[in-house]
Amino acid sequence: MRWRLPLTPTRPLHAVPPRWRGLLLAAFLAQLGWHALEPAPEARARPVPEALPLPVLRLAALGEPATLATAGTLWLQYFDEQPGESIPFRELDYHRVRDWLARWSALDPDSGYPLLLAVRIYAQVSDPARQRIMLEFVLDRFLERPGARWRWLAEAAILARHRLHDDRLALRYARLLAEHTRPGEVPHWARDLQILLLEDIGELEAAKVLIGGLLANGEIRDPNEIRYLEQRLEALKERTGTENKPEERD
């Protein structure tokens, strides 16, 4: 059986009177000309609107909150690229951006997209106050679902250390990451992030104390993690031993 388009039979082209053929061509050309001559869309830079209440958004989602969250996240992502206008991140109202991100995250808790935007897009702005808004947003979302969102808090800790240069904040995030996750739920390096940060900022003694405490309290039972921490402890002892050793004189 041959497949056919579900269209009615057609008569030959010359069944169409020439003036209608000509008019169709002329009208099509007129449309192209109109498009070429009409003014370009106006650039209208608008501020980020206030986030709508979550119940309203749930109602508007019509039973598809994840779909609305996806569309809303993309809308927010492109908000700085409004038609004909590019808005620097530092001119966006970050409180409103944070509120919108929180709404989309609440509508689709399984999606990491709002957290990715917060850490890798909005927190990259060179404005410490705005960076802190985004990092606190990530912390709040992490505390809601630590097991699923630990990686974003780990990234936030790294950002706090290297972009914001706030070691206390970075250590706080790393500590909360360890406190709110269970062994085996996240990789070793993530739970031991505070050790790595302490090493990174030169607090070797504090790192040693922390590892010693972790090994002593028996909370860690995974043999691989215990071995990893023991290796770190040995390495730290060697480093502190070398650094404390007085320089030999000729």
Partner: peptide
């Protein structure tokens, strides 16, 4: 014009 074109060919 497009509608007329289509209708003439039907």
């Amino acid at each position: 014009a497009a509608a007329a074109f289509d209708l003439y060919r039907r």
